[in-house]
């Protein structure tokens, strides 16, 4: 009776609910997108200011436009991955905040169905959000995309999302176990990922121990792959090792995340952490 079709239909409950919430919290969504645009523009503007910052014509216009692209790709890809990570990792804190957690956990849906629904939503939400920011970046800056391999970049992005989903699911355990401070802890994971994943710097140039850590973060390879595709026009053949690595990583991290989560759920139900009052 629990067919795959049935599970998928049930997982749509989470997509629909989240879309409804986004519509209802549209004011907050506008603030959030404005904040994200401002952040992205501020980072990319660094490229334009490089020469005046060092007080010399250190970079010629060709290099400046390459730096613009380097930073823009970093900011946008990280924005997308960060949104996917946040949506997935916040699936518990949001329900805690609204007080609905017991009802969702009592419903006859598998936790994997719950996660598939949340993940599908995170893809859609992340893509829409990133597309809006991309549009603004394209309007403001003169991006040199003549050599870009968009199909290759998209493949890397999708393959890389899987790993972030796995890490996000593990992060979602924190609000389950620590009702008061769990959400803040997931922000720490997110900030650490930005730091070690070469979002605005090539990993080889990072100081130790960040450089070594960067090789452990899947996001590092996503960024490298997408930069290769968009800036240097790397073809799918050249991207194949990155794609394969990211897929394997995702296929390990997602089941691991689900495992960790179900352990957390059992622990919460043993110790009474789902809810204390009422």
């Amino acid at each position: 009776m629990t067919t795959i079709g049935g599970e998928l239909r049930a997982s749509y409950a989470f997509v629909e609910r989240n879309i409804n919430l986004v519509k209802r919290y549209w004011g907050w969504e506008l603030v959030w997108i404005a904040y994200s645009i401002a952040n992205t523009l501020a980072v990319v503007l660094i490229a334009l200011g490089v020469n005046s910052a060092v007080g010399a014509r250190a970079l010629d216009p060709g290099h400046v436009s390459r730096l613009v692209l380097f930073l823009a790709v970093g900011a946008l890809v990280w924005h997308y991955l960060g949104v996917v990570f946040s949506v997935v990792s916040e699936m518990i804190s949001w329900e805690r905040w609204e007080g609905t957690i017991e009802y969702t956990f009592m419903a006859p849906v598998r936790r994997s169905t719950h996660m598939v629904g949340t993940t599908l939503f995170s893809f859609v939400y992340g893509l829409v959000h990133t597309a809006i920011i991309l549009a603004v970046v394209v309007l403001v800056f003169d991006l040199d995309m003549r050599r870009a391999n968009f199909a290759g970049a998209t493949l890397v992005l999708l393959a890389g999302s899987l790993s972030l989903i796995g890490i996000g699911i593990m992060g979602a355990v924190l609000p389950l176990l620590y009702p008061e401070r769990g959400p803040e802890m997931t922000h720490v994971i997110r900030a650490s990922l930005v730091l070690v994943s070469g979002v605005y710097i090539t990993p080889a140039e990072m100081p130790e121990p960040l450089r070594t850590l960067s090789y452990l973060s899947p996001a590092t390879y996503v960024l490298e792959g997408i930069r290769a595709a968009l800036i240097d026009g790397a073809g799918v053949a050249a991207l194949a090792p990155t794609l394969a690595g990211l897929l394997v990583c995702g296929l390990i991290l997602i089941p691991l995340g689900v495992r960790v989560f179900s352990w957390g759920e059992r622990h919460a139900k043993r110790t009474g952490r789902l809810k204390r009052s009422g």
Binding site: A13, E16, N20, T100, I101, E102, A107, P108, G278
Partner: peptide, 29 residues
């Protein structure tokens, strides 16, 4: 086989009763 009503009505406050209950309905197929 079960469902429960608790002392506090726990809902997504920005959503309407219809949206909240449709969400529940989907979860229960």
């Amino acid at each position: 086989m079960i469902n429960r009503v608790s002392v506090e009505a726990s809902f997504f406050k920005k959503l309407t009763p219809m949206e909240n209950l449709q969400y529940a309905a989907r979860l229960y197929r």
